[in-house]
Amino acid sequence: LEARLEQAAMLKRVVDAIKDLVQDCNFDCNDSGIALQAMDNSHVALVSMMLKSESFSPFRCDRNIALGINLTSLTKVLRAAQGDDILTLKAEDAPDVVNLTFESPESDRLSEYDIKLMDIDQEHLGIPDTEYAATITLPSSEFSRITRDLSALSESVAIECTKEGVKFTCTGDIGNGSVSLRQHTNVENDAKSVDISLTEPVALTFSLKYLVNFCKAAGLSDRVRLCLSNEVPLLVEYGLSNNSYLRFYLAPKIGD
């Protein structure tokens, strides 16, 4: 494997966004890119990352390999990279280590690190293709604000989507709160728009602690997409350039 990223910031942000949710992960490398799928310890949330080969230049992967990496270790090494450094990942066939180099674009500084790999026996889940009943695309900062504000009151949030819009509601010991958003097109800045596409109304309840965790990815993208259908896990997607993405799935809470 040899994969060169123009900006180390991308990988730094991705790892930062998922390291509190999952710890030891296989980075599955093949000629289409680098993928990661991992569940959190409680088996309630799942991270699915895809960095397409087009996000790297150049990208070469002659044989499929799984790089088992501890994200705490990776974080320590990535801290040594500046955001605008050029980052290159390298691994041999049947590797013991993954090699990372960081090149400063404006000086002759080159740093190089090896991280020991681990054997990770990871459960791989088949995620069915789902036609979601409701898809909401909104500014990622808005979604972060909603989850943060409501998590101060309650452990859970009910998300209801109807043709009127989407409503986030919570009930806690001190009282209750809600935030409603309507479909809205911002003509000056499309990134601030709220798009709602609905085939049937949905109402689901989720644990806020996971949603707050997902929002650590907000720095990766101006927009976030929420996909919901009744009684299936929520999909929260942060799109990256070149069709790469960081997705989170969260199992709902269901009434007794």
Partner: peptide
């Protein structure tokens, strides 16, 4: 009250 469902109730083990 509601209880938290696990993902394995929805996604298959590959």
């Amino acid at each position: 009250t509601s209880h938290q469902v696990k993902l394995l109730a929805f996604f298959n083990d590959k």
